[in-house]
């Protein structure tokens, strides 16, 4: 089963980091070399993917129109679902990228006796939104480790995130919420038979990886404490490109940073690139204006066609016989006899 395989891979990653640091004392490898390599892979890989997509042209103008087109002035045009201008497309994309508009439409098909009904189904959308935004906030909070002084917006987000003021250190909600959301996404993959049927190891792996990242992060912050001053020394060193590896940071930190590095390096080569792909999706990022503005296909080549002349050549007599105008009239006498014979045929 794909899930077990992916779970095994994530466990193996944890063991590799643990053995590497505890057994082989490769702190510099796991704390510096691998993180640098991962970040470089992430950026180069992502750029490579986006450039590769960008190199394939968009030959046809194929927006999916989800609302009324712009046509007659007295008909209310749906600007967000069927955008006609660049500005309207931008707004549609904002809704897609920031609010997952299309997923919000989701319905669940159910049989109710003879009827098929389509009920509201917002859980996937909700879990998706919560997952992505809590991940984003966790990521922003981590900027504290790479900056000195810490930017005020990072501190602000932290104070909002921790406003419940539970425990010492203060509980950050997003860490827990992230773990909960990713767990939900995993459970629906297992429990919905259709979704389980389509799931690949590549679908479970990032879920387990992110679960492990969140779990090690939470463990490190609340339970297996590490020396935060030394961690910050290492991370700011990374940010300043003058890395140092202080002694005495707990192994849990190296496991965490190794898993994060894996996620970064894996990102561009996996389905996670949907982050970049959504912006390029031609069913969403084009205006529904293709009768107003001509869309140019860069490889539009000449094709063999059947011309009117060829058509008339084949059917001239029949056309003349029923009085359809033609370009080239045959001699008059021939014309007459044809007319008589074809007339009856045409009636059948």
């Amino acid at each position: 089963m794909g899930a077990l395989f992916s779970f095994g891979v994530v466990i193996a990653l944890v063991i590799i980091a643990l053995v590497g640091v505890k057994g082989a004392h490769l702190q510099a490898l796991f704390g510096v070399v691998i993180p640098y390599a991962a970040v470089v892979t992430f950026f180069i890989g992502l750029i490579y993917r986006v450039v590769k997509w960008g190199k394939s042209p968009v030959p046809f103008h194929i927006p999916t129109t989800c609302g009324q087109q712009k046509s007659l002035p007295w008909i209310k045009h749906n600007k967000l679902e069927s955008p006609a201008t660049g500005k309207e497309v931008f707004l549609r994309m904002v809704l897609e990228v920031l609010l997952f508009r299309s997923l919000f439409r989701n319905l669940k098909m159910q049989r109710s006796g003879d009827r098929v009904v389509y009920g509201s189904a917002k859980w996937l959308w909700l879990a998706g939104i919560v997952f992505h935004y809590s991940f984003l906030i966790v990521l922003i909070r981590h900027l504290r480790l790479f900056t000195n002084p810490v930017p005020s917006f990072v501190s602000l987000i932290e104070s909002v995130d921790g406003f419940l003021q539970i425990g010492v250190p203060n509980l950050m909600m997003t860490g827990v919420v992230l773990l909960a959301a990713v767990t939900y996404l995993f459970l629906r993959r297992i429990y919905i038979p259709q979704v389980r049927y389509i799931s690949l190891p590549a679908d479970y792996f990032p879920l387990f990886l992110i679960m492990a990242i969140a779990a090690t992060g939470i463990l490190m912050r609340y339970f297996i404490r590490v020396d935060i001053v030394k961690v910050k020394e290492l991370t700011t060193g990374l940010a300043r490109l003058s890395p140092t590896v202080p002694d005495g940071i707990g192994s849990i930190f190296y496991i965490h940073i190794f898993l994060v590095s894996t996620l970064f390096a894996y990102f561009p080569f996996s389905k996670l690139v949907h982050l970049g792909g959504i912006f390029l999706s031609p069913t969403r990022n084009l205006a529904n204006n293709s009768r107003m503005v001509r869309h140019v296909n860069p490889w539009n080549y000449d094709v063999k066609v059947h011309t009117y002349e060829e058509y008339e050549e084949e059917f001239r007599d029949k056309m003349i016989s029923v009085g359809i105008p033609v370009e080239k009239n045959p001699p008059a006498e021939e014309n007459k006899t044809e007319e008589a014979s074809e007339e009856s045929e045409g009636k059948e």
């Binding site: 997509w53 190199k55 968009v58 030959p59 098909m109 996937l124 998706g128 259709q194 389905k271 690139v273």
Partner: peptide, 28 residues
């Protein structure tokens, strides 16, 4: 793949969330 961005992109970015599954009339 070289001529159609739609094709290359749609080969790459599906996350198999399953939102489309019960939207197809042939599946229903």
């Amino acid at each position: 793949l070289k001529k159609y961005r739609s094709f290359r992109l749609f080969m790459d970015i599906c996350v198999r969330c399953g939102a489309c599954a019960d939207k197809c009339h042939f599946y229903i």
